[in-house]
Every structure is written in structure tokens, then in C-alpha cells.
Write a protein that binds this DNA or RNA. Sequence first.
DNA 1: ATTGAATGTAAAATATATTTGACATTATGG
DNA 2: CCATAATGTCAAATATATTTTACATTCAAT
Lengths: 70, 70
Amino acid sequence: MAKNLKLKSARAAMDLSQKDLAEAVGVTRQTVNAIELGDYNPTIKLCTAICKTLGKTLNDLFWEDDINAN
Amino acid sequence: MAKNLKLKSARAAMDLSQKDLAEAVGVTRQTVNAIELGDYNPTIKLCTAICKTLGKTLNDLFWEDDINAN
DNA sequence: ATTGAATGTAAAATATATTTGACATTATGG
DNA sequence: CCATAATGTCAAATATATTTTACATTCAAT
């Protein structure tokens, strides 16, 4: 899976560390790190919580138009 | 937990049964049923697959219908 | 009234998301 | 430099998403 640079960038725009964001949404730092690195398939509730904390929507941070262009 | 009526309606609009949708996205009928009934916290990958099958986006089908915690 | 498709539900098992604890590396400021 | 925050990574444990199997109900058309 690709890195989630949109998430990383939105987090940076709010001046939050991975740890800050993790605490805000109630998960561990490792989970946020893994999501940004793209190793992960998080739950929709976690994605939604992250979006709300960062003032973004699911489409903003988690929608990929690019899968399987054919 | 709130039912996902937007999903149910989008599926109906494509004339797909829960079983049809489940097969299209590679999960079981029970999983699709549970998501529509709102018992569930599916993964983002599954939500994305459902959206693509139904010609909708994450915001269309999964934004703001369950605000509940883990 | 009966058949069959679609849906709702549930318990136990499996797969995987997430945690815990730890250590390494890369910034960044003092 | 030195210290410390921030990030990357990993193995083992726990929590939970999903499957499997099974049965009940609803509803549309015989």
C-alpha cells in the first residue's frame, strides 16, 4: 500500500505529532505511524476520528482514485 | 448504533442483493448485512471496495453515520 | 399454501487490527 | 556536541473484524 501523504500533511498543518494525533483519537502512536506509512487497513471509525480531529473528510484523507486504472 | 440507510439505498439503486454486493467485494453476506444494520466497524479497505462497486464515495456512504466510539 | 429468494440473527472459529514494550534513527534546539 | 522530541520498526500479546455454519423470518410470486 502507498504511504498516506495526505494524512501526514494534514497532521503537519495542525502542528500535531503522531503521538498527539494518536492520543486525540485514542489509539497508539504506532497505529498512527503505520497508517501514515501505509502498512495498514484501519477501521472506518478510526479513519473518521482522525478526519474529525484534523478537520478533513474521509474523501480528503482516505479516498484513492488511483486503484486499478484500466 | 445507526443503520446505514445510505448504503442500503445505494445498493437497492443498483438492484443488488446483500449477497450480490458481498460477492462483488469479497466478503460474506453476513458482513454486508451487519454493516447495513450498523452493528459493525468495517475496515476502510472494505468500505472503499463497497463504494467503488456502488459508484459512490466514502463521504457519500460512510461519512457521519456512525459517530460512536469503539 | 407453498416455494424460493432475500434478509435478520447467533455462536464458535479464524484472520487481522491494535496494543504493549522495546530499541534504533533522524531531526531539532540548546 | 548533547539532550530530547519525533519518527521508524519489530515481536509478542490482546481486541475485534470477518468467516463459517446454521436456523428463523419476511416477502414476492406461484
